[in-house]
Design a protein around this nucleic acid. Sequence first.
RNA 1: GGAGGCAUAGCCCAGCUGGUUAGAGCGCUUGCUUGACAUGAAAGAGGUCACAGGUUCGAGUCCCGUUGUCUCCACCA
Length: 872
Amino acid sequence: MKGEMLEKTYSPSSFEEKHYKAWMEGGYFDPKPGEKGTFSVVIPPPNVTGQLHLGHALNHTTQDILVRYKRMQGFETLWLPGTDHAGIATQIRVEQALREEEGKSRHDLGREKFTERVWEWKEKYGATIINQTQKLGSSCDFSRLRFTMDEGLSRAVRKTFVDYYNKGLIYQGYRITNWCPHCVTALADTEVEHKDLDGHFWDINYPLADGSGYVTIATTRPETLLGDTALAVHPEDERYKNIVGKDVILPLLGRRIPVIADEYVEREFGTGVVKITPCHDPNDFEVGLRHDLPQICVFDDHARVNENGGKYEGLERFEARRQILADLEAEGLLVGERAHSHAVGHCYRCGTVIEPLASKQWFVKMKPLAEPAIAAVKNGDIKFVPEHFEKIYLNWMENIHDWCISRQLWWGHRIPAFYCDDCGKTTVSETDLTVCPHCGGKVRQDEDVLDTWFSSALWPFSTLGWPENTEDLARYYPTSVLVTAYDIITFWVSKMIFSGLALTDKAPFPTVFIHGLVRDNKGRKMSKSLGNGIDPLEVVEQYGADALRFTLATGSTPGNDLRFSLDRVEASRNFANKLWNASRFVLMNLDDEVAADPAATALATEDKWILGEFHRLVDEVSANLDKYEIGIALSKLYDFVWDIFCDWYIELSKPRLMNKGTAENAAAQSTLAYVLSGTLKLLHPIMPFITEEIYQKLPNSTSSIMISEWPQSRADFAFDAEMSAMERVIDAITAVRRIRAEKNVSPKVKAPVYLKTEFESDFSGATTFFERLAGADSLSFVKEAPEGCIAAATTASTVFLRLSDLVDTEAEKKKLSAECENLEKLILSTQKKLDNADFVARAPEAVVQKERDKLAGYEAALQNAKDALAAL
RNA sequence: GGAGGCAUAGCCCAGCUGGUUAGAGCGCUUGCUUGACAUGAAAGAGGUCACAGGUUCGAGUCCCGUUGUCUCCACCA
């Protein structure tokens, strides 16, 4: 309410909820048609696995800053929120809960009942996520909330699958896939985390069938020996030429297998002989195909040895390894063991060691999709900010593998492929089928679901209604920018790009703005297991959403990780508190009627100075935000509010504020209100709540700050002369303070200040300032240095303080001499630069002029310092 | 094995297209209950910008190499 005072202490929890509610009710988050065009962003949908962490908070804050900024600038702004079903991740969580709470597995419930449970889970955590998003102040349009398994999005998924299939981009193949025996599903390459583990290399002798000796192979996984169908050597390896074509006896099982030659074998590695297990190694699989070798799978879905493993049947894979090694040892066939560190794949969700397993899966042919996606980035249609992330993207895209999209899960989009047992044909269909379109026989749908990323790949357009030709799609697609962390570039960003190009013929966004990961104060990733995770809501409760947002927004440069510590949040909160108290002061001194435009009042030098500073800030902050330099914009705002507005302007304004009813008082009020109001607007995208709370109480505010107009540039407020004048005054006051501080002069002791300067007129209205801010009981101008004074030199003036009792002449002489020396050095180096013909000739004129000005400044300061010295 | 990031004050980080006497915050030192704020205000100490070369009139900033560190990608058994 206007005219009302602010509470004495800043307590964000007392008003944050109120304002958020008002924004929602006012419909301010919905896009409003504007002349400047549209600005749209889709949120990277958080997984419905649980709650939001600080990484999400960073992501959301970044987007909200951009969105609020654009909205205030008059763009028709849409920020579309939503959540992701997150296939494996969510299913695992629900299975875990089911086991812990009821001791049941998903199989006990059956597919339908289990899926219902997951939907319940989704409702619960989806709501939590929305609630958290709102607590952070995110200005999303919740009327357009989406979920990857919504009806509309599911239609988009089906349409995509069928389109790709009809274009020959989707195929089914019997391939080696990354198999997680714990999750019991195939994983995409990107879902496998490789970690270097200390393992062993075992040398095993395979007896030649003709009894002429042994062939020694080296392996890291002896248990797969059960599925060996050949040994391989390099065709040009002289050592083994004689055994190619011979047979060897597979140890333990006694099977006869051939020795073949294949160029895949590296002669220098191991013993130069490789066992070939087509079913359990991707390379061996290829070799097997080339040589028409039988495929013998020896593990089941849980990575236990199956019926092909003879007496090892039923053993878990690592137990089988121990047994087999022991047995080989007993038979004298194990002839060597040495330490060997190698990369082992782990499931990114549960951490289980991946088992490469041959199985039938669905794949997307990537080459044709990747090509336009590479071109779009190379030709600049899509830009990464910071730029270097495009290398990561391109590196991945250029080395693309086909994408395994089927998952042996229940939670997700079921693959729309229908198999007919009668005619054996497969039909892929956008609608559910019960009978075979070829023979009329009964069909059954594929049991598997699609990879989660298959649906999130469509997110920028499926959320807007694609494949329907909706109004939203026409208005807001392509989106304006995508904001996400770098760890998800290959998972998600790349897939949205090729999907958008393939399905909508357009890049889904022109810019990808990448941020880093939030780490703890020791630089470690935040995780449950380390117990170092911080709940964003706890931070919000303790310090306020604005302080959290401020911390996240200033924490790092784009693309770099951010170390999070509560110390930093506290500093942000202190900034909010500073702003709060400054605003309180301003409000306390404002009348009900204040001129909205200070230009209409009798402005003092200091008013013009702050107005000039403020408008310089407006231009810079806008330019920084346009370039996604949020941290830079924010640090300028911080400095302006604290160092310029609070520490100087407010202090300078006080004398006039006490003098009510005068023209100069009116000018001070108007300037204070104008600058504060404008500053709040500049801060609003970053700190929406506190700025709203204060703004509403300012005399000339209309409606909510959220929908107020972003400050404009003003040529009539470029007060260059006044800005220089005030800088001279400030320098001089600082110089006096420095002397007093160094001499430990009590604030109660007043002393006359003498000023020797060429810029006397700049100081004409400054006497009060010296009295209030520099402990002066008088200010007078001198042409010569007065005697018995301590002096300090600035660029524009020399100040003299008469503190006769305290003067330590020798110490002062030393100090001033040191300063003279320093200035002489600076003059010398600047002079040297200017004497350099190359510099003067080649450097831009502005740079040269700057050096000349600098030199003049140093010389003046030196003269001032010398005067001071002479006076002692 | 490939690719990339980072290395600046005791700590955590800025430093935008090369031109500043290299900057904040936290911490530290000295003195301060001045009527917005001790979640404050005044002043101050503290840096051979990892190391070694190069380009340039000029390098914390660009290039090459070295070292340290982090990350991503990768089917060497």
